[in-house]
Each structure stands twice: as C-alpha cells, then as structure tokens.
C-alpha cells in the first residue's frame, strides 16, 4: 500500500495519467447516473410505494385472503436475495418464453423489493394513527377510502418519512446490482472503464463518490420534506 502511494507521487507522469482518466471517466459515469441510476431509482421507488400502500392495506383488511396474499409476497421478497430475484427475472423467465429487457426487468425487480420492505413501514405508520382519527372522520360521514386518503395517509406519511428515506437510499445503492443484468447504469459503466484501463481503485472510488453525493443530496431533500410535513406538529 505504502509502496503504491509512493510510486504514484514519485512519478509526475503517472499522476497526470490518473488525473486524465479520472476526468475522462467522469462523463460516462455521470451519464450512467443520470440516464439509468436515477430513473431506475425514481421509477422503482414510485411503483414500489404504490405496491407498498396496497400491500399494507391488504394486511390491514378484514379479508383473510388478502392478508395471506400480502404476507406471502412480503415473506418471499424479504426471504430471498435481491440478486437472485433479478437473475430469475432476467435470466430465468426467458426459458419459459417471457423475455424482458434489462431496464424494465430491473424496474420490476426493484419495485417488488421496495414494495415488500416499505409495506411494513407503511403498515406500522397507519397503525400509529390514533383510532380517534378514524372515528372522528366516520362521525362526519366520511367513508373508508375518504378517511384513508384525506385523514390517515397524510398523517402516516409524516411518520414514515424517516424509515422510507432509509429504503430510498438503500435503493439508490442497490441499483448497482442491475449491472449484472446488463443495465448500463453507473456501476456497469465503471466496470467497463476499469476493465479497459485497469485502474480499478481509481474508477471504483470515483463510482463510490458519485453514489455518496447522490445519497447526500437525497438526505437534504428528506430534511426539507420532514420540515414541511412537521408544520402541523408542536415544535419540540
């Protein structure tokens, strides 16, 4: 390790070469981030949250059948590795004639994953809203879906922002797994660049830094959303 560092700085030409590689690889890496990593994250999160709300409601519904479907889904997704799920979708399904392109396959995989994990967060958030809120809404004549949409979910959203942000940030990083099903997202670009110039350390550190910056920006956005949703709560 020490030798390697010494070598770099002892040789100005090599330093220059590394700088050039860092700069020239920035463009394809950012391209991969903007064209694939971010859309993949946003779309998967959007579909995942919709799935999660439906799953949470199924778990909370009086119907035993819906409860069982929701339980099996959550159990199956949480009990199997994401990598294996992606392999089944992309390499497995074609053998029975279902061929999905890499990008949509990744969206399906990540959405299913987010849906399962986030459903438990949303279920807990809904349960945390006092029963009196349901009752108050019912006494002014609101039905189940009106109460849910206008009274319960807006309050549950506030409770669930911090844990959902965790899910979101994990998702950003999990999208690197899409590289193995040939989505040319940022980390796949990094692999391609590094295998061409053999500067593995440099390129992978660069990739790591980009993930870090994206997640850092996300956590700032999370703070903003929390502040906005906290406007109706007494300051502590």
């Amino acid at each position: 390790m020490k030798m390697y560092l010494n070598n770099i700085f002892a040789d100005p030409e090599r330093v220059q070469k590394l700088m050039d590689i860092a700069i020239s690889s920035l463009r394809p890496l950012l391209e991969g981030t903007i064209l694939y990593t971010i859309p993949l994250t946003l779309l998967s999160f959007l579909f995942g949250i919709i799935l999660a709300v439906l799953t949470a409601l199924a778990r909370l519904s009086p119907s035993k059948l819906l409860q069982i479907i929701a339980r099996v889904y959550v159990s199956a997704i949480r009990g199997t590795p994401l990598l294996v799920q992606l392999f089944i979708l992309f390499f497995g399904l074609p053998t029975i004639g279902i061929i999905i392109d890499p990008f949509p396959a990744a969206i399906v995989g990540f959405s299913l994953n987010v849906g399962a994990y986030a459903s438990e967060i949303i279920r807990a958030a809904i349960l945390s809203i006092p029963k009196g809120q349901w009752e108050a809404a019912h006494t002014i004549g609101m039905n189940y879906s009106q109460t849910l949409k206008r009274i319960i979910l807006p309050q549950a959203a506030r409770v669930s922002i911090p844990p959902l942000s965790n899910t979101f940030i994990s998702l950003v990083k999990d999208t690197s797994l899409a590289s193995v099903i040939l989505v040319t997202e940022m980390f796949r670009r990094a692999q391609q660049i590094a295998s061409a110039n053999y500067e593995f350390l440099l390129v992978y550190i660069e990739a790591a830094l980009i993930y870090w910056v994206v997640c850092f920006i996300l956590s700032i956005i999370q703070d903003r959303i929390e502040q906005r949703l906290d406007r109706y709560v007494a300051k502590r």
Binding site: Q133, A136, H138, T139, Q155, Y232
Partner: peptide, 16 residues
C-alpha cells in the same frame, strides 16, 4: 352518522 354529530373527550381534531 348523518343525523348525528359527535364531540369527543379528546377532541380528535385532524392535526394536519
């Protein structure tokens, strides 16, 4: 529900 109005011990206002 339509014919009656209810006032609760703990108000149960919608906090948001």
């Amino acid at each position: 529900k339509r014919e009656t109005g209810m006032v609760f011990q703990h108000y149960n206002l919608f906090p948001h």
